[in-house]
Each structure stands twice: as structure tokens, then as C-alpha cells.
Write a protein that binds this DNA or RNA. Structure first.
Lengths: 349, 349
DNA sequence: GTTTTCTACGGAAACGATTCCGCAAGATGC
DNA sequence: GCATCTTGCGGAATCGTTTCCGTAGAAAAC
């Protein structure tokens, strides 16, 4: 039905091979012929069949993005960055959402071994605790670039942020605001970024001679209700934390809700800082102090690294680690009594 | 390199056609052979080449999702719904982000005519003011399902929400809260959903005998700074609006920021209601009254309709219009003085 | 004037799966 | 006992491109 290269060739009294080469500006074809072929291609609205082309060339001009969730500003922005680069390069983006589920992740990765895509960009699911599926993928020679939630044991190119430093900065920020019992809300002990952030947290406590209490470290899941319950139990303790460092936005949100229910006021009774890419953190009540990752840039860099492999056939010889910087943005949720007074004073004027 | 069907056939001393049929449970093949073939397929980790298969069958098991943006809870949730259904059906999802740009939209749609995907799910860009590209796509016989930002002139299957009713309800909600000069913040006059919402807005004004002032209707773009400027000009007028009905979340957010800058207090001096899928609307200061669309369900229904076409070869014979209901969730940003007093009273207890 | 070298193109074999035909046996019908 | 049907499978064409060869004719080399 659709016009193909054969039809073009017949129309022009040329061979199929000549038409194919003319369309790709091969040096073997005369200018005159190229012009004729291209004009006819436009006239007949010829569009090459991507499946035939992929089959023959053994490359699909498609990349896969495997992420834990999409209704999350961090990943949405990362997708934007990836999509931007992919568009520039004429590539198409397939999206796979694991919903933090390891089984799904394994299924996706296994399926992606069939040559459907030229490369895979991914961020690990929180449940993923072993990496056999990813090893298999790499063995098949499919380029793999991790971003944010990376797999360190596999090696290869990864794009991360300075999680240790951010964890340290967040914790120190709380300490300087007067907190002494700081809870660390973790998303998954399997994720290396969580470990890094926690190391920063521990280091900051140590530096300021604060005890590291394991009861103040809690691991959360994907279940919102369960998360709030864990948090509620923590905040109902006789001696509750006076600071919260949340390694994921949704944990901070849970914190807000639970504090509201328990009538614990932020930042007077408890201060909160969280990793987050929420644009409107400043409109929350109180505004949320965040560590904001350069999500768009992370996606962009991940895609750029991928195309470095794809274009140069540079088979992962130089597994790079790119570290981008996050920024701590102090807001109302970590305001100290002193600062709060200053703010009130300003308002009064 | 990868094991193909030929290799399987050789290994089993069978013909290629037999192996192919055995793998697809063809009735022509004996049970014994099927078992042998499948065992060998697993043993050799055979995975059919998707490009060869797509080429031959002339179908790709892929669908495209074309949306204006992804860093937006509505679209992110819709993608979730689409992806859920696609996974169930064994389909893959390609994503294309127009960034509200008509040129990009046209490019995408034109490219998608090459048979890369079996169907297209889309939500129009705000800039799109003519639909030739979409007509061409349909003429090629590629199923097209619109969701939310639909194209009414083309016909075909669409998934929408009850925008007129929602617009009416939102406006009436403001009126009942005491507003008399209600501004309508529009995203694009090209979008039919905007028109519907505005019709509801007008109807509500009419019902309550309020004048329809064109100066209170403003159209916004994708440019955040420009949007805030337009809004700021509107709120600096001698007689400024006392209510805002925002047809998109980002316009409400702009409203919050501008009110903050101009020291206009919400909801005392101005009340705001907005279309939004922001989960944490209730944590804003003040919490935001929203019209929330069933985004996930919209995506799901859109995908289900698509598969109805794809599976039954039901060539769009029955272009359905599915209307889902949005819900108005009253919160702080539209609290009347009366209610506010009641809330204060509750707090005092 | 003969040989070599380009230039510009055509023929045909891939790529890997699907499917239209065709055809041996063995089963069945009469 | 012969014709017919069924079962189970193989051969080869096909989808549309890309690309490896090959080659006619003109230009250049000697």
C-alpha cells in the first residue's frame, strides 16, 4: 500500500540499489540522479520502512528508558533531557516503568535483549537486589547507561549526583538549625545512592559529635499508607526526632501529613529537609527545604553518553562516572527559631 | 550472533517453517514437536527478532504516545494508565513530547506515518491550530485516539472529561464563596477543552446574573515569566478580580506566586480554583481547591480503545466519545470568610 | 591503440520471521 | 484394494532495505 523503494525505482527507471544510495547521498551516485530521486521521493511521499531498515542494518534507532516511576518530577525531568538529546540525534524513545518492582524490571530487561533497541538508559527499581539480568544484557553487547539509581557492581557508565556531599550538607544544615536527633528516611537499602546519602548523614553526625542512633534510620516502601504508619510510629515515640532528612520527596510529603495529624509543627518542633524536584516546594506550608538534583541535566548527560557509544562504536571501553552537583535550597521547613524571628520582623515592616 | 530461528531448526533437524509454527502453537504441528522446539528455544535462549517479525507481519506491537509535556502530573499519570494497558497486551510504548510546540507535533506525526507504530495516542499541543497532519495520519489508516486535549473536527475516538460541567462547577463554587469578578485563565483558545471549560464558566456567570467581562479572560502561553507578567498586570488593575478559575495547574501556581509578590492574600482577597492533578494540593499555603481529572483512568481508557481497534481490526467504525467525570475538591484557596471563621473555631478547641 | 582506472549504476544476496503451497506418509472410506 | 482425506512437516517466496559484487562505458595513462 505505502510507497516503497521499489515503486520509486520503477517510477524513475532506476534500480533499487541506485535509489537507495541516492537517498543516502552515496558518493557513487551522480548529482543529477540524486536530485531526481529525491524529488520523486517527496512527490510520492516516500517514507522508508523502519522495520526493514532496522532488520537489515541490525540497529533500530531506538533507545529504551527504564525507570521506577514517571509521576515524579525527577524522572519526568530526566525523561525530558533524554528525549531532547534523542530528538537531536533522530532516535526514538521507548519507555518502561517498573513501579519499583523487581520482577517487572527483570522482565523488561530480558525482553530488551531481543535487539529491539540500540541501548538502554536506566534507573534501578528500589527492590532490585541482584543484577544478573543486567549482566546478561551487557553480555549481549547492548550499551547500558545508568543514571541516579546506578548499579555500581556492574561497572559501565553512570551519571550520578554528589550524594555523599548532599547527605552531609543536608544533615549539617539540620544540625546548624538546632537539630540533635535527626532521622534518616531511606527509600531502599539496596540502592547505592541511598547508601551514599546515609554515609554523608553519618559523617555529618560524627563531625558534630552527635550519636548515630539506628532507631532513627527507617526504610520505606512504595506503599504510601505503610510509610505514613512507620513515620507515625517514629513520631509518637516518647523522645521523637527533631529533624528529618528524607532521601525522597514522597517521604517528606508523608512527613508533612503525619506531622499535621499529630499536631507537630514544622519547623518549630521538627525540621525537614528532603531530596526533591518539586517546583513548588516554596509554596508548601511551610515551604520545604530541598536538595534539588539537576534532573534534566542528568537525563541529558545520560543520553549523551549513550550516543557516544552508539555513534563511535566505542564499546564501553572507557566506563565513565559523571558526577553532577545537587543544590541545597534552604526554606521554611528548616528555619531556626532565630531565623523565624528575623522573618517575622521583616514581615512586620 | 544472536540465535535465530534458523539455528533452532538446524539444532533440531527441523525446517524453519516447522519451528516457527511450533513456537506459535500452530494446529499443524504435533504436540511432541512443539515441546521439543520450545525446550530448545529456552535452552538456547532464543528471542525472535522484532524487526523481522514487524516487517513480515506489517505490525510492530508498538504504540506512540504524543503529549505536550511529561513533567506534569496529569500526563505522567495518563502515561501510567497507558503503560499499564500496553504491558498487559504485550505492546511497547514510544513517547514523544511536543513541549506545546506545533512544529514538533507535526514532525512527530509525519514521521509516525512510516509504519513504525500500530497506533497513536495523543493529546494536542496548545499551539496546534490546524489538523492536516492528523488527517494525513488517519488517511494512512493508522488508528488515532485522542485523550483530554482532543481534536473534535477530525472525528474518531476521544476520551475527555466533563469539561463544561467542571467549568460550571468551578465557577459556581467561586460565586458561592462570594466572588463576583471571576477571571478565567486559559491555556489556549485552540483547544476544545478550553472552550468547553469557558462555556461552563460563562454559563455559571449567566445563571448567577454576573456580567461576563472579556477583560477577565486571559490566554497564557508556555512561558512562565510571561504568564506571571500577564497575571500581575491583571491583578494590579484598580478593580482587580476577586476570584480566579485556572484551566491549568501552572496558571494557578503563577497565581500563588504573583499574589505573594503583590501581597494579595488568598483566600481573603482573592480565591483560586484550578484544574490540577497535583497530589499535594492540600499542602500548599493555602491549600488549593482543585478540579481533579481521573488522569490514570483517562490514559487507561485511551489505551483500551486503541486496542479495541488493533485487536478487532475494527477500523474506527464506531468513533466513540468517552466522558469521564472530574471532581471538585474544595480546599483553603476558596474558603469563604464564614468557613474560615468556622475553621478557626475548630482549631481553637 | 591498447590497457588501466574511474564513474555511475544494476543484480542479487543478505537480514530473520511468516506463510502460501505442496507433498509424503498413514488413516479412513467404500 | 484403491481412492480420498488427514496429519505433520518442508521448500520457497515474501516483507523492504542495505550492501556486496560486478560491469558497461568513458576517461586517462602509456
Amino acid at each position: 500500500m505505502a510507497v516503497n523503494i521499489k515503486r520509486l525505482a520503477e517510477e524513475l527507471n532506476l534500480s533499487i540499489s541506485t535509489v537507495s544510495r541516492a537517498l543516502k547521498d552515496s558518493f557513487e551516485i551522480s548529482e543529477a540522479t540524486k536530485v531526481k530521486v529525491k524529488e520523486m521521493a517527496i512527490k510520492l511521499d516516500y517514507q522508508p520502512n523502519p522495520h526493514a531498515s532496522s532488520l537489515r542494518r541490525n540497529s533500530s534507532k531506538m533507545i529504551a528508558v527504564v525507570i521506577p516511576e514517571v509521576a515524579n518530577n525527577f524522572f519526568a525531568l530526566a525523561i525530558n533531557g533524554i528525549e531532547y538529546v534523542a530528538q537531536e540525534k533522530g532516535y526514538h524513545v521507548l519507555i518502561y516503568i517498573t513501579h519499583e518492582n523487581k520482577t517487572k524490571e527483570v522482565e523488561f530487561i530480558n525482553h530488551l535483549q531481543d535487539g529491539r533497541v540500540d541501548g538502554v538508559l536506566m534507573s534501578l527499581s528500589a527492590e532490585t537486589d541482584n543484577f544478573d539480568h543486567l549482566v546478561r544484557l551487557k553480555e549481549r553487547g547492548i550499551p547500558l547507561v545508568f543514571f541516579d539509581r546506578v548499579c555500581e557492581s556492574i561497572g559501565g557508565t553512570v551519571i550520578v549526583t554528589d550524594d555523599f556531599e548532599s547527605g552531609f550538607a543536608a544533615t549539617e544544615h539540620l544540625i546548624k538549625a538546632g537539630c540533635t536527633r535527626i532521622a534518616y528516611l531511606d527509600l531502599s537499602r539496596h540502592l547505592s545512592i541511598s547508601s551514599r546519602r546515609m554515609e554523608g548523614y553519618r559523617k555529618a553526625l560524627e563531625k558534630h559529635n552527635l550519636p548515630a542512633d539506628d532507631d532513627l534510620i527507617a526504610e520505606f516502601t512504595n506503599d504510601v499508607a505503610a510509610n505514613e504508619e512507620i513515620l507515625e510510629n517514629m513520631l509518637r515515640r516518647p523522645v521523637r526526632p527533631d529533624g528529618i532528612f528524607a532521601s525522597a520527596e514522597k517521604l517528606a510529603v508523608a512527613g508533612y501529613y503525619v506531622c499535621d495529624r499529630l499536631n507537630i509543627s514544622i519547623p518549630e518542633q521538627i525540621k525537614i529537609v528532603s531530596f526533591s524536584n518539586l517546583e513548588i516546594s516554596s509554596l508548601l506550608h511551610p515551604s520545604l527545604t530541598t536538595i534539588t538534583q539537576p534532573a534534566y541535566e542528568i537525563g541529558k548527560q545520560a543520553a549523551l553518553q549513550m550516543f557516544r557509544f552508539l555513534e563511535k562504536r566505542d564499546r564501553m571501553k572507557t566506563p565513565e562516572t559523571i558526577v553532577l552537583k545537587s543544590t541545597l535550597i534552604p526554606r521554611g521547613s528548616t528555619r531556626s527559631a532565630l531565623e523565624a524571628a528575623a522573618v517575622r520582623k521583616r514581615f512586620r515592616k
